[in-house]
Design a protein around this nucleic acid. Structure first.
Lengths: 204, 204
DNA sequence: TAGTAGACTGACTGGTTAGTCATTCCATCG
DNA sequence: CGATGGAATGACTAACCAGTCAGTCTACTA
């Protein structure tokens, strides 16, 4: 009998989905989309291959689900935190800090995210439109902050769309350096470095 | 009989290699490493599949050869041009301009380069060490210019290694935007934008 | 306890493709 | 012209893997 609208079936489904997403994230991060096999993902989740297909229609769908989960989580965090800040300067700093910290904590997800925005963007036909949208939405939250900053003269008059993407690129570059072990600095120091560079670049 | 050290065999080998690299670049750019087939590359080069294996030992090797060819060309161009400039400011500008223009002219190559630095860097075991080296070498040329700038006080005292990579990231981001059709500006305008942002960020 | 729904399994199939190699082709030369 | 050897060919093989489905297991119910 359903209690609070959640049947046993729902609970199970949620559990399996979470297990599978976690497994998918790990395996796809280690091997990339093509080299990862559905058998490996199933094994990592502790189920047989057939079970994966009870929850997802294809390997591709598992991949997108893993990607979407992370993007959504990150997006929500950015939106929430930036709404709490008043000054454009603080918003920009928060944006940088959240993304670096999020990827630092979710390195596996970053590998997928980054690969996808590599191969997905360079071979656009293979990626559903909605991911392109989700990616740009992040930049747009930042862009709004930049525009507000220009309005009250904290930021000089620049192309906000390009600047927003540029800031995201700087962040992504720093994460890559950290992942490769090129950056020996602690997270806060890297956050400060990016913010410092950015703020001097755009401040009025 | 060999004339000037180049036998007929050498000429043929050079011709086939060039044909194959050009074909590989096109096909890999369109499909990515995994989705591209050796048959397609052979067809694009106007030869049969077996012929590919007379010149390269594996699909992977063809891919690396295509990647290496472009990186080397770009690297040489950067090195030559930067040596011609005296002022750090001009060197930085030249670095930005060369890379953006090179990728603008070689969009196919950029797709490979970018994908590889995506999947290759995030799955490092699959990429030979020398590519990591080649990539960092580029940044080091720029880094030397930054250090010179700090020495004669044109540039403030920053972490030059991180800054060099950050500048490369900004450039890469701009190219992606251009490839996706997000940037409607002409090349020169984008070059100026990046330089402007960078220079304000790092100038003393 | 016997019956049942439906979650789970994993051996199997069909399609794909990297890499091979026996054969053909052809430019050169005596 | 006929012989020779290296380049080129493309049919073939062996391996791989996404996706399927007939059968098994299990937790609940009557």
């Amino acid at each position: 009998m359903p209690v609070l609208g959640r049947t046993k079936k729902d609970v199970l489904k949620e559990f399996r989905t979470a297990e599978l997403l976690e497994a998918a994230r790990t395996v796809f991060a280690k091997k990339g989309f093509y080299a990862a096999t559905v058998d490996e993902i199933a094994a990592a989740a502790g189920v047989a291959k057939g079970t994966v297909y009870l929850y997802y229609r294809s390997k591709q769908e598992v991949y997108w689900a893993a990607l979407e989960h992370g993007i959504t989580e990150l997006h929500d965090e950015i939106q929430t935190r930036l709404a709490e800040e008043r000054l454009p300067e603080d918003k920009v700093r928060a944006f940088i800090a959240i993304k670096i910290r999020y990827f630092e904590k979710n390195r596996d997800f970053f590998r997928i995210y980054f690969s996808e925005l590599g191969s997905g963007f360079t071979h656009p036909a293979q990626m559903p439109r909605r991911f392109e949208g989700m990616y740009r939405q992040q930049a747009r939250i930042l862009e709004a902050a930049l525009q507000a900053g220009i309005k009250d003269r904290a930021i000089r008059n620049i192309r906000t769309d390009t600047a927003a993407v540029a800031i995201s690129d700087l962040i992504r570059g720093i994460i890559v350096q950290r992942l490769l072990g090129w950056s020996k600095k602690d997270v806060e120091s890297d956050i400060n470095f990016v913010f410092d560079l950015v703020w001097r670049g755009i401040a009025a």
